[in-house]
């Protein structure tokens, strides 16, 4: 017994039973695994704390839609399609069209999503995008009027998430802005209660119109990690699941804040918010470059 106890301190440390591979450690203690990285100022995927993942924007990928875009942010891929349909205006706004964004987080995009009615997360993102588009007057809904009180355009903005690896809001908003930017709708004519849309000839400036967007929105999301509240830019799925809160900043091209939300995890300091705002400005610049066609 005595001889065994003298040997223990040295052997326990090196004992294979108590050492895990990095991937096992990550599964057992995801938060601790992250803490080890973050304390060194890097993240498991090699990014710095304020680093965003590589982002690409493709315009006009869907030919059946009036406007479309595909956006990739790291492992997150979304496709956005805009369809214009003739609709009847509301009685209290006879000269205004509709702009209806919707985000679909289908089970194809991640094993975390189940088939069935839209999840809470999907509805929250849809509503957030709806609000930011409406509140910051991105599009004058009067531009969508065909005949006052009779017919208006209804723009259905559908975002389908194809691959989900965190930060859906940034990806969805970027795709919505890019898709709205390349919307082209055939000129309608209104005659005696019937809206006619010109037929099969190729689209050109003469027979169709584009949307006048008052501003281009771009957003940056940061995950708040741990009690000392480190902000991780553009969190992926693994980082989202260990984070305690989130800051999302939406800016327009003039650098004005169009939306700001901070949810979860205690109080964040004004200094942290300022720091995030600085990074969001840089990110907005980068995204605007990408959104240009």
């Amino acid at each position: 017994m005595a001889s065994a106890s003298t040997a223990t301190p040295a052997t326990t440390a090196a004992s294979p039973a108590f050492t895990f591979s990095a991937s096992t450690f990550q599964k057992l203690h995801p938060a601790e695994y992250f803490r080890k990285f973050v304390s060194q100022g890097v993240r498991p995927d090699g990014r710095l704390l304020n680093g965003f993942r590589p982002t690409t924007v493709h315009h006009g990928v869907i030919t059946t839609a009036n406007g479309s875009a595909m956006v990739r942010i790291g492992g997150t891929t979304v496709v956005c399609g805009v369809k214009a349909e003739v609709a009847e205006p509301r009685l209290d706004a006879p000269d205004q069209g509709y702009l209806v964004p919707n985000v679909d987080l289908s089970p194809i995009s991640s094993s975390a999503f189940r088939p069935g009615p839209p999840s809470e997360q999907a509805q929250v993102v849809s509503e957030a995008i709806h609000r930011v588009l409406k509140e910051s007057n991105v599009l004058d809904l009067k531009d969508l009027c065909i005949e006052e009180g009779k017919a208006v355009w209804s723009l259905w903005v559908d975002v389908v998430c194809v691959s989900y690896d965190g930060n859906i809001y940034d990806a969805a908003l970027t795709s919505v802005m890019a898709a709205l930017g390349n919307v082209r709708i055939r000129n309608p004519t209104y005659e005696e209660g019937i809206v006619k849309v010109s037929g099969a000839e190729d689209l050109s400036d003469d027979n169709s119109f584009t949307l006048k967007l008052a501003r281009t929105l771009s957003s940056a999301t940061f995950a708040l990690f741990d009690t000392n509240l480190v902000a991780l830019a553009d969190p992926n799925f693994a980082e989202e699941s260990v984070s305690q809160g989130r800051i999302t900043i939406t800016l327009d091209e003039a650098g004005q804040i169009c939306a700001l939300s901070k949810i979860g995890a205690g109080a964040s300091s004004p200094a942290l918010l300022r720091q995030c705002l600085g990074h969001a400005r840089e990110r907005a610049q980068e995204l605007r470059q990408l959104m240009k066609q």
């Binding site: 059946t64 496709v79 399609g81 919707n102 088939p115 069935g116 009615p117 259905w156 559908d158 389908v160």
Partner: peptide, 18 residues
């Protein structure tokens, strides 16, 4: 097997329920 049709995929937009 689950099927999902993107609303913008067809000529006419149609909301297809699950």
């Amino acid at each position: 097997v689950e099927f999902n049709v993107a609303p913008f995929s067809t000529g006419e937009r149609r909301r297809r329920t699950k």
